[in-house]
């Protein structure tokens, strides 16, 4: 329950950052995708049914605050979670470089999924033009930030667990 609360608050905080403060960075219009990093974290370290739903809700939240068509990001995030979950058994994740690489790949998966699903269901004319540049820039940014976000999340988790232990 405490972990759920932790991730819920982190998700709200991350969403808040992405909609406001991160737009101050001189890389606009690209915004660091911290929600994706959180989704990858859930897929790697909390492979549960709740985490799968959490990934879906993360995407859905982005759809609510940003996208015109609801469901695009929900699909992409669910796909990222599934991909990360399926590949997590074969990855040794103690190295920050590996973490970054996993997030980079996850971001690429998300970007490609967004373009493909847009083309299939929404058929926005010319949406794919310039998409490659967005995918690569977003993936690199997310990979760069991943070790920091992962470290913060781990610290948050150990803090929560420290309080949970005496209660049990």
């Amino acid at each position: 329950m405490r972990l759920f609360l932790l991730f819920f608050l982190v998700a709200i905080f991350v969403l808040l950052l992405q909609t406001t403060l991160l737009h101050l960075l001189p890389i606009s219009p690209v915004v660091p995708d911290l929600t994706l990093v959180l989704c990858v974290y859930l897929g790697l370290y909390h492979p549960t049914v709740g985490a799968a739903l959490g990934a879906f809700l993360l995407g859905y939240s982005i759809d609510i605050v940003s996208s015109r068509i609801i469901g695009l990001n929900a699909f992409a995030m669910s796909l990222v979670f599934l991909t990360v979950y399926l590949s997590s058994r074969a990855i040794w994740l103690q190295n920050p470089l590996v973490t970054s690489f996993v997030v980079l790949l996850a971001s690429l998966v998300k970007g490609v999924a967004l373009v493909l699903v847009s083309a299939l269901f929404v058929s926005i004319e010319g949406f794919w033009i310039g998409a490659g540049w967005y995918i690569i820039k977003e993936a690199l940014l997310a990979a760069l930030l991943a070790p920091i976000v992962f470290a913060l999340l781990r610290r948050g988790e150990s803090y929560v667990n420290r309080f949970r232990a005496p209660a049990q």
Binding site: A52, A55, F75
Partner: peptide, 22 residues
């Protein structure tokens, strides 16, 4: 396989929402 199955369910749900929204 509850985790991959639930993730697949979320994928299907999002496609359903996507179609309904479109």
């Amino acid at each position: 396989n509850q985790v991959p199955l639930s993730a697949c369910f979320c994928l299907l749900l999002s496609i359903y929402i996507l179609i309904a929204a479109a």
